[in-house]
Design a binder for these strands. Structure first.
Length: 279
DNA sequence: ACCCAGGCGGGCG
DNA sequence: CGCCCGCATGGG
């Protein structure tokens, strides 16, 4: 199964701190990428070649027919997004314009809800390298090489979860895994962004930022605008809003980038980290 | 030794 | 509401 993806950059997307960064195995060699992405039972394997702004993708999986796999890949990698119009809509200022230029083709991905929830429970007060190590430990210890189900983590002891290096997050992971209900969590996709966020934040360990990450990369609600330390730094230093509480920063982002704020966030985050001047 | 990382819950005023 | 604190761990 082959896809030619226009205006898609595989490296920026894979390495952008989204769930696939955390639990996929991937390697890059020149313009080529190899990715093995664990499902609950099985894998999706991808060979991709970056050709300028476009990307040639070959994918394989025993879990899907060719037709299904194509739809699956397009959805997961954000290839259905009208990226040119998204860029046009969010490049409201020079900083964002440069950010898009620097990370051209980076997409917001759509990931399995549980995989996203677990990823961002682990992410709090943590760094990308360590999040990844912990997620790969979960795959190894609780998923038998595949992605671990909520069940397998609910059955594990807090101590076993702790042993993957989760630290103080172990109790949150255990509790959310025990309460995780696939139908209920799926039903949140039918709620508005605000209502879905309120529901997610009822779980201990899911606060404002983690909820927004789950909504953005799991539910693909593009109005979600996760505010972490980097985003806060970028907004305050570059955009100089009058009020700087999290609540006010959310308002600012919505005003600046509207319902595509989540896309803007992804570019602000990486361009902000790259530009050392903010440190 | 110190500081930080894709924050959160809990307690307080 | 806003502010402050503790929290596990590893890398710079």
């Amino acid at each position: 199964m082959q896809i030619i993806a226009k205006d898609f950059n595989i490296k920026y997307t894979i390495e952008s701190g989204q769930p696939l960064t955390f639990f996929a195995n991937y390697s890059f060699s020149g313009s080529k990428a190899l990715i093995k992405y664990p499902l609950y039972e099985g894998f999706i394997s991808i060979e991709a070649e970056q050709i300028g702004k476009d990307c040639k993708i070959n994918a394989y999986s025993e879990n899907y027919s060719n037709l299904e796999l194509e739809l699956e890949i397009k959805e997961r990698l954000g290839l259905n997004d009208d990226i040119k119009n998204i860029y046009k809509s969010i490049s409201t200022d020079p900083f964002m314009y440069s950010a898009i230029e620097s990370f051209y083709g980076m997409r917001v991905t759509k990931n399995d809800i549980w995989q996203t929830t677990l990823s961002f429970l682990v992410s709090q007060f943590n760094n990308i390298k360590r999040i990844r190590r912990i997620m790969l430990c979960f795959v190894d210890k609780f998923g038998k090489g595949y992605f671990p189900s909520w069940d397998s983590l609910a059955k594990a002891s807090t101590k076993e979860i702790f042993a993957c290096g989760t630290g103080f997050r172990a109790k949150y992971i255990k509790e959310v895994a025990e309460k995780y209900d696939q139908e209920l969590f799926s039903s949140y996709s039918r709620l508005s962004y605000e209502e879905a966020k309120k529901e997610l934040m009822k779980y201990k360990g899911i606060g404002d930022k983690v909820a927004d990450c789950i909504l953005l990369m799991g539910y693909k609600k593009l109005e979600a605008f996760p505010i972490d330390t980097w985003i806060k730094r970028v907004l305050i230093n570059v955009y100089k809003p009058e009020k700087t509480s999290i609540k006010e920063l959310h308002k600012f982002a919505r005003k600046q980038w509207g319902t595509l704020a989540g896309y803007a966030q992804q570019y602000l985050y990486w361009y902000g980290r790259e530009s050392k001047l903010l440190k």
